[in-house]
Design a protein around this nucleic acid. Structure first.
Lengths: 218, 218
DNA sequence: TAACTTCAGTGATAGCCTCTAACTATGGTG
DNA sequence: CACCATAGTTAGAGGCTATCACTGAAGTTA
């Protein structure tokens, strides 16, 4: 049992199978939603019998939890990459929309209908606040106009979620509305609520974004 | 077979059982989400064996479709009642939030994660546009400030979803942002994304509403 | 090299679920 | 009273999650 450093072939094989399982799971989720995810079907696709998967994941819930984790990680990485490329809030918003459109069900896995009993693992909240941090950075770089609102005062007293970020309350408020408004448009778009209406979701998204950044309506 | 007018006792019994089934279904959905709805469990609760329910509903999907219809109907009625009581957009917004908080899973049944294959029945779009119509009425009554945006121009050309409502494009825009922004805050609140943050969702909702109605930040 | 240990994968099984099919029983109708 | 539509039953096919005991192969150690 030398372990440490040079990973054994066993471990490598194990990791490979795990990632293949997750990949198949993502395909199933993308095509039929998370509720239709079937361990049995995945096993059959991989040419092995159902119970074999329990060597790799404790069960269906544990697999889904892992996928949720990966989804959060993916979004956080997308945001960080954009921010390191010098993205402002507008670019961040488009990065978000692109990420969501690339796999709607992945977006819904994070921000969609919650299962009443289910509790997301602790580390996802850490990733979530990492996402919030890059958003806060971008919002703090924005010129802040307008008078302070009552909600800004509320945020002054409840800024623990910002995890020590030095942004002023108005910036926190800006970040929150960014999140909620873009999620509002995006989730309705992904759910197909605009398709029957003839509206172009991209333009509505852009309009909300313009309003958010204070872009003069040209 | 006299039928017509005086409903037969058979039909009355049938209707009663149907509503009891739906009621139990709502209880299940409220406590464990729509994905956990089980015809078998409902039948067992009602003291009869599983397949008996197929006399009343074609299957699980048909039952859920009926519940979706009822949810739309309930929201439309709530809106209409508020509007007939002279509610402005602010009151309408609070009616929406109250309705959503009363049964979050019912809200998600309409506005939550969509099942990729599933298509809502035609009549729900009719109810949906009824909801939109009362929202448009309220928005048209609002004073419209601000210059016309590019998105307003887009709406000028794509106003078929307004179903002939005479409101100007700016009012249509207002109604849309009402919908998307309130949904943004509300869905994140119902999904519990604010609980770990210490933020009061009601105040965030109110802040968004103030911004929407142009209420001066006092 | 031989003995031992670890672990991937198997089939059997229990207990859910949806949904179909054939059958029984009952209550309204002519 | 005879008839028939219909509510409800059991049996069963086929799907799912999950546990268990077992096999066999691959690594490890003496």
């Amino acid at each position: 049992m030398v372990n440490s450093e040079a990973e054994t072939p066993r471990a490598r094989y194990r990791a490979q199978v795990r990632t293949e399982i997750k990949q198949r799971a993502w395909e199933q989720i993308a095509s039929a939603g998370a509720s239709a995810l079937s361990l049995n079907a995945i096993a059959k696709q991989m040419g092995m019998s159902g119970p074999a998967l329990y060597r790799y994941f404790g069960g269906r819930d544990e697999l889904i939890t892992e996928l949720v984790r990966d989804a959060y990680r993916s979004l956080a990485d997308t945001f960080r990459a954009a921010a390191e490329g010098g993205a402002d809030v507008t670019a961040l918003a488009h990065a978000l929309r692109g990420w969501a459109l690339r796999d709607p069900q992945r977006y819904f896995l994070i921000y969609g209908t919650p299962v009443p009993g289910y509790q997301a693992p602790d580390d996802t909240t850490a990733i979530s606040s990492e996402i919030m941090a890059t958003l806060l950075d971008a919002c703090a770089a924005l010129p802040l106009d307008g008078p302070a609102t009552p909600f800004d005062a509320h945020l002054e007293d409840h800024r623990n979620w910002a995890d020590g970020h030095p942004a002023p309350p108005a910036a926190l408020h800006r970040a929150l509305t960014f999140w909620t408004r873009l999620h509002g448009v995006l989730s309705l778009e992904l759910a197909g609520h605009f398709t029957g209406m003839g509206i172009d979701p991209a333009q509505l998204f852009a309009a909300e974004l313009d309003d958010l950044t204070g872009t003069p309506a040209s």
